[in-house]
Every structure is written in structure tokens, then in C-alpha cells.
Amino acid sequence: MLLISCPWCGEREETEFHYGGQAFVSYPADPESLTDEEWAQYVFFRDNPKGDFAERWVHSAGCRRWFNTVRNTVTSEFLS
């Protein structure tokens, strides 16, 4: 079980967190102007790299703050 560092509360057990998927996928400024394919990219498609991955977590059972981090998907090591 991972020990995850919340930027506010410090190290807590993985069970206190929820995973938020790939980071920096912004809600489009004007969804109505997007093609179906562009919108589908936003809704359904995410990267799935082997290695370092910028992703979002939320300290859901603690301070409930979202944060971005980089995790190695092979070793589960948090790099930031």
C-alpha cells in the first residue's frame, strides 16, 4: 500500500486518497465549438504511459484537496 504525500497533511495511507487520472486535461473553453472527435478526445481518451506520468490525486478522507503529482507507473514511486 502506497504512502502518499498530501501537500498539506503530509504522508498518509493510500486508502485516504482517490485517484483522479491524468493531470492537465482541461475542460474545453467552448465545448460547443468542438467536433465530435475533439470532444470525444476530451471525454474518453487518456494517456497510459509506462513510466513517469503526471496525474491527479485527491486527499478524499483528509483535507479533500486535489493536487497534481508525477508518479512512475512501473514502480509507483512519486517523483514530485
Binding site: 482517490h18 483522479g20 482541461s26 475542460y27 491527479r56 485527491v58 478524499s60 479533500r64 484537496r65 486535489w66
Partner: peptide, 11 residues
């Protein structure tokens, strides 16, 4: 509640 927090904080 989580859904609200997510959109409020991240978007």
C-alpha cells in the same frame, strides 16, 4: 460532494 470539489478546485 467530491464531484463539486473536483470541478471547483481543478477547473
Amino acid at each position: 460532494l467530491d464531484w463539486f470539489e473536483e470541478w471547483s478546485q481543478t477547473e
